[in-house]
């Protein structure tokens, strides 16, 4: 075989692997969507599921009606928005301050603290808070859920932002000092605009994290503020209760399709955020 045909085969093989992986990522979700517009959902074979016969929207009707989809969506959005707003307000200055510390000892211990708290198991936050809020009589409140979300997001966000602010060239800020800017002016008018794309990426990731979150909602959210991730569990069924395949599929599709389309649109930000978050400082 000639050198050329070998490299051609290699090339085809590469694309086969990548296409295979593309299918692994996408096909499960397409299955979910196809099931959501099927009358009997998965009580039919896979080929039938992907055929065009017997399409229906009844599962969506149930999700909106009995499933209270919009109510849970509202709660999801409230939780995610509040959490991000607070996190951005306190984490951005904090990360900035850390990069400005002169003592390398306090700098290192703060960074160490931020990094190590990033790995805390979430039940260690959820379980004690559940008990605490019951004891002081505010169980199920929005406050509790937000507090847990802050605990989950802060270490990750500060870690990301330290990376961003470290990248701001010193000369730019020094020039601002000479021009008589106060520290707060420098932060708001010089440094923050420079790192804004990074902060966008961080905020997008934080939003997705909060929107997808289930554990804290299960422990801490009362009936009046349960998000989508708890809403869907009603139809999943236990061992003895039958699952409602079609409704689960419709509900699940409506939870993930918006977030996936969003992720595809802001893909660039997510890629940079995820990459930055896993870089050794």
């Amino acid at each position: 075989m000639s050198y050329k045909s070998i490299s051609r085969i290699k090339e085809i093989f590469k694309y086969l692997v990548l296409t295979f992986w593309f299918l692994v990522c996408i096909v499960p979700l397409v299955t979910l969507f196809m099931a959501s517009i099927s009358d009997t959902a998965l009580f039919q074979s896979i080929p039938e599921l992907f055929s065009l016969r017997g399409r229906t929207f009844v599962n969506y009707v149930i999700s909106f009606g009995h499933g209270n989809f919009l109510f849970h969506l509202r709660n999801s959005l409230i939780i995610a928005t509040l959490a991000i707003a607070v996190v951005l307000m306190v984490c951005t200055p904090m990360a900035y301050g850390i990069t400005k510390l002169t003592s390398s000892k306090s700098k290192n211990s703060l960074i160490f603290g931020v990094l190590s708290t990033r790995f805390i198991p979430y039940v260690v936050i959820a379980m004690p808070l559940y008990l605490l809020f019951r004891e002081i009589g505010i169980s199920g409140s929005l406050f509790g859920v937000i507090m847990a979300h802050l605990a989950m997001q802060m270490p990750f966000m500060i870690w990301l932002m330290i990376g961003f602010f470290s990248g701001v060239p010193n000369e730019v800020e020094e020039a601002a000092v000479i021009d008589g800017c106060s520290p707060f002016q420098i932060f708001f008018k010089i440094s923050l605009p420079i790192v804004l794309p990074g902060i966008n990426a961080a905020a997008i990731l934080a939003f997705i994290m909060s929107y997808n979150e289930f554990l804290f909602a299960l422990f801490l959210a009362g009936p009046e503020n349960r998000p989508l991730t708890v809403g869907i569990m009603r139809y999943v069924g236990g061992i003895d209760v039958g699952a409602q395949y079609g409704v689960v599929a419709a509900y699940g599709s409506m939870i993930v399709v918006p977030i996936i389309i969003f992720a595809l649109i802001v893909n660039r930000y997510i890629v940079s955020g995820m990459t930055q978050g896993a870089v050794k400082e």
């Binding site: 990548l18 992986w21 979700l29 997808n212 289930f214 991730t229 869907i232 993930v256 977030i259 996936i260």
Partner: peptide
């Protein structure tokens, strides 16, 4: 490819 490869990561875990 990358745009679609990150889809599993953003998919809601309970889903």
């Amino acid at each position: 490819f990358m745009a679609f490869f990150i889809v599993p990561f953003v998919t809601t875990q309970v889903v």
